[in-house]
């Protein structure tokens, strides 16, 4: 996958012009609702609606979205299986014998693993909503408006810029190694990877020195220009966000008792 893909989508989606305070509020509040909801139901609703907003309103291509979402969901699913068999409580619903040992899934385990799965799904799709609809630069502007320390913002802006240079360097070194059979076999791979890491460390160091010279050449005096135009908040998006968050909170309270078994 192209290393620019997340950034590209964030810059060129249908919602990139919408007020970023609002988008961050929506995303972060949704995550909080998912985390604090005692039932699996609300996170599931949040997950599905956030995915629908990201694909439907922000016009993120469905294929790319599913590919991205599958990464955390796969992790969560494997975790959920472990929880299903290791957590006790309630009545047994399924027994498996594996290498002579018996694994039993109980209703308590099933409830807990479904909750973990739906919270991960809900939280991740809310996070992806932020990541895919808001350009990084606008997030820095929000930090600035929220009076985050200047040093923190300046540093994160440079980190953001340098990540892409770093990835570019890593890909170049990796290609050079692959071309000379660097990753043939386990022993070779370990050796090549260690060389990659060493070379990257030194390159990062050299780059840092060069950047310092470049900054000095332009009279660096501890100041960094802030960016981002002021965005107005539209009534409709604000009302929709408010309604959505209230609705989800109500759902979380009303259906707090719902469990699978």
């Amino acid at each position: 996958m192209d290393e620019h893909i997340l950034d590209d989508l964030a810059l060129n989606n249908a919602l990139s012009g919408t007020n970023s305070h609002l988008k961050l509020l929506l995303g972060i509040s949704s995550i909080l609702i998912c985390v604090f909801s005692p039932s699996f139901f609300t996170p599931l609703v949040v997950g599905i609606s956030m995915a629908a907003v990201t694909v439907g309103l922000a016009k993120i291509p469905l294929r790319e979205y599913i590919t991205l979402l599958m990464i955390p969901v796969t992790f969560a699913a494997s975790g959920a299986i472990v929880i299903l068999f290791l957590t006790g409580g309630g009545d047994p619903i399924l027994s498996l014998s594996l290498f002579g040992a018996t694994l039993t899934a109980t209703t308590g385990g099933a409830n807990l693993s479904l909750l973990v799965l739906s919270r991960t799904f809900g939280g991740m799709s809310a996070l992806f909503f932020i990541a895919l609809s808001t350009p990084m630069i606008q997030i820095f502007t929000v930090f600035h408006d929220l009076k985050f320390p200047r040093e923190f913002i300046d540093l994160s802006m440079m980190v953001y810029r340098l990540i892409f240079i770093f990835i570019g360097e890593a890909i170049a070194i990796h290609n050079a190694q692959v071309m000379r059979n660097g990753y043939n076999g386990l022993k070779n791979s370990v050796h090549a990877l260690s060389m990659l890491c060493g070379a990257l460390f030194i390159k990062a160091w050299v780059r840092g020195e060069e950047m310092l010279i470049a900054m000095d050449s332009r009279c660096y005096d501890g100041k960094f220009e802030q960016c981002g135009a002021k965005q107005t908040i539209g009534i409709l998006p604000a009302a929709a966000t408010g309604a959505y968050l209230c609705g989800c909170s109500v759902l979380a309270v009303v259906f707090s008792g719902i469990t699978l078994f």
């Binding site: 810029r161 340098l162 960094f224 220009e225």
Partner: peptide, 19 residues
Amino acid sequence: NQIFAPTVYQDVAFGPVNL
């Protein structure tokens, strides 16, 4: 090596801001 800001505007503004 010379461009370290996250946007073109910010990078070009770096010198004048520091002056």
